[in-house]
Design a protein around this nucleic acid. Structure first.
Lengths: 163, 163
DNA sequence: CCGCTACGGTTGTCGCGACAACCATGGAGG
DNA sequence: CCTCCATGGTTGTCGCGACAACCGTAGCGG
């Protein structure tokens, strides 16, 4: 079959999306590094843990909700533990598994970093759009994630914030 | 001032955007690596050069249009040159500057990789949305880029595809 | 109870991006 | 001309992510 190219409107949309994809993570990551001494992915780990009961979660569960591979998460967690943000502990019910939990400093760091991060998200995303556009964006990203994540691994993370 | 938190709708939108940001690049990058032996950023470099007169461009101009720092671009171009996709040549009019040009194999690689990439973009983005959503997406990403890229560095890249 | 496979994590190697230091050329002012 | 600063790129170091190989434990079949 011959290639089905993109028409002008599709191309316009795609090029812009690609640009956002390229720039946005860098902007947010930079803000968090400066203000909180934490990378964007580390902040995401902290954020997910704060919503977990007892601030503790199993490695594999955390990996799924942060969309990380286990090797990646393992390294990140080890570094964060060495900085005193997290603790690893062998799971009681399964000697293979590891539970990760927030330390006091982990909580404190999250609370310290959150305002700046929220402000950045506001400035660069939320406040840039009208309420209608925000609704449209939810519908659009839902449709995209349907294709991107058919098994629904991350779905558990974002479905929670449904209206 | 106290922190202005996100309401449910804003949070719903943001969490989904973050998820897309996390997943989409990996999906597209993987497809290109498998099918074309090229990374997403390398493909973007090739694509931009394809649209330049003579398939040639100055390093600094290329860096701006691909939203890359000069060091990063320098390394990428060196690797691509060693693979025979590009050539570097000292600029005629400025001995400090470097012109980068596509080789025959660079053109061939781009043409070989393009169909699969377009298909991936179609499948994961374009075809997942209705025509109305595509229009909305253009407006939304425009608004975001306004904030993200106030100097308009990448604007030159995507404004070209306006209707 | 033994052996086998699957699961949950960790570790080693490689390649890439960020940042800073550095080198060469261009251009302006005296 | 010569000095000084700005411009355009390149190179070195460091930290992180991907992938694969590996280790210990669980659970199941015989």
């Amino acid at each position: 079959m011959s290639t089905q190219w993109l028409d002008r409107r599709q191309l316009a949309a795609w090029v812009r999306v690609a640009s956002v994809l390229e720039v946005l993570p860098g902007v947010l990551d930079g803000q968090l590094r400066r203000d909180g001494g934490v990378t964007l992915f580390e902040y995401f780990v902290l954020a997910v843990l704060t919503e977990a009961p007892g601030g503790t979660m199993r490695m594999s569960a955390l990996a799924q909700q942060t969309n990380a591979t286990l090797p990646r998460l393992s390294n990140v967690v080890r570094r964060m533990e060495s900085r005193g943000l997290l603790v690893r502990r062998r799971a009681d019910d399964d000697a293979r598994a590891t539970d990760v939990g927030l330390t006091e400093e982990g909580w404190a760091t999250t609370e310290r970093a959150a305002p700046g991060h929220v402000a950045a998200v506001r400035h660069h995303v939320v406040d840039a759009l009208t309420p209608e556009q925000l609704d449209q964006l939810v519908a659009i990203t839902d449709a995209l994630l349907e294709r991107l994540d058919p098994t629904g691994g991350m779905a558990a993370t974002y479905r929670r914030y449904d209206d």
